[in-house]
Design a protein around this nucleic acid. Structure first.
Lengths: 180, 180
DNA sequence: TCCTGTCTATCTATTGATAGAAAAGTAAGC
DNA sequence: GCTTACTTTTCTATCAATAGATAGACAGGA
């Protein structure tokens, strides 16, 4: 694995736990067994690192979404794939969505990072609108897409806050049932 | 206004923008025109400050909720008050919920602060369950309460992330319509 | 006289960041 | 195969700024 990938892995793990300011160059250097000055070689400024991380996260997320909905033929199948991907990120990594956390911290982020987060959410909305029933009026599509996205992100936050992943399933099952 | 109140005000403003690590003793000292050592006099450790802030925030939140639902006679009236309080926090303060942000950062917080956040959300769930229709089965109450809370918190995050408060109204209107 | 609150002064640790040397790898020419 | 030249990567060493935190002096009111 390349050094940049190792750095992004370490940064993602740390950032998804404590946020943007919980990641330092020295932490990443220790995690990857190099010196902090070498981290700066790959990512001169912290916002370069943050921006690259959001880009990679977003790409992986939508690649997985595309792969896991390749054979989906209904809104419900698409939504179940959406739910499962987010659930996996919560349970497997024991952390919330990178962009969910950075979105909450938005006002304290470098603008290049904040823009990446905004783009991630806009793509999410577009995808959700695209898989909702064609019978649904556009305004209703927008509302449902936003509700599903906010609900899934909020569900992750709530599950971690109360230390109970069951609430994620309860919430997202209900959201999907209310949509289809 | 007392110094501790001024300090908590300054801390709340900063923390609700950038998170726990975006607040420093020197920032608060400058905001309140005292020295950082004097801040330590009132809150010896940062976790004391964080904990006191979450306590005050939670108290104000539930006090307002109680006051604004005093004459409410239906689930819808209660939910509209709930929605309005959160909306006010988003629009007026141009920031998301303190506990929503700290909940996202939970893994990086001192445990005393994380516990305060958890308690805040548990109280929210209990209140929401208490105002839902008595005809509703308990399991359904729990699901709806969690969905409403996660949805409102996620809606704040999404509104700030996309720089568009309209999505808050769209999401929360839909959530309430789906519940009553 | 005591208590509350603020001050000056200072400490250690950590932060993001940089300059420049050294090493490791790559490719071309002989 | 060996040497030279160049590029990429990592290193040592260091910087100024900021972090949370503490000791002890000083001021003012009860």
């Amino acid at each position: 694995m390349s050094t940049t990938e190792k750095l992004l892995d370490a940064a993602e793990t740390r950032m998804r736990k404590g946020g943007y300011n919980a990641v330092s160059f020295r932490d990443l250097a220790n995690d990857t067994n190099i010196k902090s000055s070498s981290v700066h070689y790959h990512y001169p400024k912290k916002e370069d690192l943050g921006s690259a991380l959001v880009e990679r996260y977003s790409k992986q997320y939508f690649d997985t979404l595309a792969a896991n909905t390749k054979t989906a033929t209904s809104t419900e199948q698409n939504l179940r794939a959406f739910q499962a991907i987010i659930r996996h990120a919560l349970v497997q990594d024991d952390a919330i969505c990178l962009c969910g956390l950075l979105g909450a911290e938005r006002a304290g982020l470098p603008s290049v990072v904040a823009n990446g987060v905004q783009h991630f959410f806009e793509k999410n909305i577009k995808w959700l609108e695209s898989i909702l029933s064609e019978n649904m009026p556009d305004a209703q599509k927008t509302a449902s897409a936003n509700t599903l996205l906010a609900g899934h992100q909020g569900a992750m936050m709530l599950a971690r806050s109360t230390n109970d992943n069951k609430v994620f399933d309860i919430i997202t099952d209900q959201l999907i049932a209310q949509t289809i």
